[in-house]
Amino acid sequence: MTTKPRLRVGRVLLPGVLAVGLFGLMALIVLNTSFGGSQGFPESIAITSELGYAMFGLEELQSTAGSIPNTESFLAAFFLIAVVLDAALDGAIVLAKREEEGKPVVALPSQRDDPDTTRSATGRETAADGGSDSTGSVTATGSDADSAADSTTAGSGTDDTGGDA
């Protein structure tokens, strides 16, 4: 019952013979087939820009001199793939969202429910600027010299602006 990807060897590799056999068969067929030489692309054409023009359906921008023939427009496919990617993103969010008692538990909440309860739940906040909020828990957790000095100068633990002095 572990999720560590331990590599299993032995008899479990037996179905893999099927894959190796398939590779052997296909390699035998390919090596006995004469393909002939490749047609290739003309030297004077930038392939990347031509790809972009083909993808966005900009046929009038494609080079005419020594051009690559029969390049189709893929604008509709581009939009379809955009929709598919969007749907996949939504699907991934739906699958990954955890629900507890009918309420979704989001990993990164955009707003806090109650500032008081959140403060008490996350009482050990890190004070990067020396701690403007000099309640007892914050200054007690600060181990660096800066916040230690703040705790001595601020004196009382209830002063909110004392940490900056």
Binding site: Q39, I68, I81, G91, A92, L95
Partner: peptide, 30 residues
């Protein structure tokens, strides 16, 4: 695509990559 001197295969490979990305998103969710 290189064999036929045609760009269609290359553009199609780009779309296949996008489809693979969508598939991985769903697969990781599953």
């Amino acid at each position: 695509a290189f064999y036929h001197g045609n760009l269609t295969g290359q553009v199609f490979a780009l779309f296949t990559m996008a489809l693979a990305a969508a598939e991985v998103a769903i697969g990781l969710g599953i």
